[in-house]
Write a protein that binds this DNA or RNA. Structure first.
Lengths: 328, 328
DNA sequence: TTGTAGGCGTTATCAG
DNA sequence: CTGATAACGCCTACAA
């Protein structure tokens, strides 16, 4: 079923059908009605592919997610998808994995698909290699980075203020009389590095431990469990542990409980993300809300603005807040 | 940059360039080399839109997810996406929301985008209205339903055996001497109804409570908490609660703990999905593993087989197993 | 082995 | 207000 079939039925030309479909004004009301009748009768839908070809506009936007383990990222992708669907865009979503080569590969794929804009979710896209790939392949389309930024003319960044956020966590612990904090990090993403930086700065400016106690672990529940026992062994006087993400914190809390350590009296626990994990863990987890969902909303709005050539802010910071529950 | 540009540079016609791009055999090796040189030089990529138009093949498949709250569904979507990406397909993903009208709307959108196949994730797609929409709009393309089925020639179903699974949970409780079980359901999806059915059948066949104790709650943590206290109030002799999904179970367990009830000695708790929630909850949750991730893999394979016109099984059942942790 | 011509379904431009 | 006609970028007969 093409516009020609409709045209024949309605006794008009294809152009007129096209005009009706696109709500052009220069059509006789009667003709319009007649064409619309047949449009409905045959339940016609325009071929978006053909449209895309002639309009040079695919009405497709690309979403790249680095790691689907991060529940907030996938949720973010869906939020963005929904916002853009309202405007008739459809989203092709890829999870790129962590290595830069495959990320760059997906940027090429986005190009082939003639996407009109893209959102890259996750701070790990913030690196030189991706920057080059964007410059080479996606130079004309607006790109929004959710929790990341690259200094390119067509790139917009929406970032969480995690550095200050974690620093504030340390301060909060301090005010509660907990002055021997530790920090647990898993992957060295730009985002996590910022969290670590915030931690170290706060420890120094508050004059807490001689050296900031920073521990690295793999990103597994078991890893978080083990590193927590290690912290207690090496620093029996630790009285607060901040984990780079909630998931680690839940497992860390469990380790403390198993060691007979009272939360939060002896050791406070704080996670980051304020995810559902924080709510279902027992005790319920105090968490730094980095507003990742808001961030996705803003990213979507930013892309839409850029797509419409509206004035758009290049770099936005979203403030984090601490949500206190039972572990502090 | 089109094939014509390349053709001009290489001193050949566009058709020859096309032949090289598509690895057709009937090209002189020398010409091929020359064309490839320019292809690389200008970093040319074919326009998939134009290709789609002439080939009548979009190389796009659609994924519809009913509810992004279900972490396994979104993970499933990403698994499917990845499997199909390997074959050069790209996935447009939509979250449809729960009401049938909007689901049907998205089926129309898939049609407009000329998708070559689709995966519908979640049992809630299994209903008449969606069946009609498929028959009307997506009649020629293979459709795979993850955890659902509709009796249409182009629809394939990959289902979790949750009914037997839950029945087995009841049996397991019974064998452990827990003979007064209750079941908590939130949404009345086909999947959840099956779970409830399995529960009721097991209760009857084992001759446990006179009437199966089935409780309905909204799908919130608070709802699960409240209904759990209600169960204890109305049936103080209850000694096992099965929740339709892990998330509810975590909150229910917390309610029991807050009431001073010992888990699993006094009351056992079982969830369904064997999700990460089961692992991070404290105590760690025993859960029915409905193999939703395997299910996604199989769904992807099924779609690929159907796309390639390979012989394909119309309806596959995947067995569930119980993963015991600390709540039984 | 290579080039020419026609068409995929739509929209935009220009006559009429 | 309407209808030809020519693109959009690519692919595939068919002819050379």
């Amino acid at each position: 079923m093409t516009i020609y079939d409709i045209a024949k039925e309605a006794g008009v030309s294809a152009s007129t059908v096209s005009r009706v479909i696109n709500n052009k004004p220069e059509v006789n009301e009667e003709t319009r009605k007649r064409v619309q009748y047949y449009l409905k009768k045959y339940d016609y839908f325009p071929n978006e592919t053909a449209r895309g070809l002639v309009n040079q506009a695919s009405k497709i936007i690309g979403i790249l997610v680095d790691d689907i383990r991060t529940i907030h990222h996938t949720e973010g992708a869906y939020i963005i998808e929904r916002e853009l669907a309202k405007l008739g865009y459809c989203s092709i979503i890829f999870n790129t994995g962590v290595d830069n080569a495959s990320k760059a590969e997906y940027i090429k794929i986005l190009r082939r698909r003639r996407i009109e804009g893209a959102v890259l979710i996750g701070s790990s896209f913030q690196n030189k290699e991706i920057g080059c790939a964007i410059k080479k392949h996606l130079n004309d389309q607006p790109i929004v980075m959710a929790n990341g930024y690259l200094d390119l003319p067509n790139v917009y960044g929406v970032l969480a203020d995690e550095q200050n956020g974690v620093a504030n966590c340390v301060k909060m612990l301090y005010e509660k009389g907990h002055t021997r904090p530790a920090f647990v990090i898993d992957f060295h993403t730009p985002s996590n590095k910022l969290k670590q930086l915030g931690f170290e700065q706060a420890v120094r400016s508050l004059g807490l431990t001689e050296k900031p106690w920073v521990y690295k672990t793999e990103g597994t529940l078991q890893g978080a469990y083990d590193v927590t026992t290690q912290i207690i062994r090496e620093h029996p006087d630790v009285d607060g542990i901040i984990y780079a993400v909630d998931l680690l914190a839940t497992s860390g809390a469990r380790a403390l409980i198993d060691m007979g350590i009272a939360i939060p009296e002896q050791v406070s626990v704080i996670g980051v993300d304020n995810s559902i994990y924080a709510e279902i863990s027992n005790p319920k987890l105090t968490s730094l809300d980095n507003k990742l969902l808001d961030l996705s909303m803003v990213a979507a709005r930013t892309l839409i603005d850029a797509l419409k050539n509206r004035q758009t802010i290049k770099k936005i910071l979203i403030f984090s807040t601490i949500v206190e529950r039972e572990t502090t």
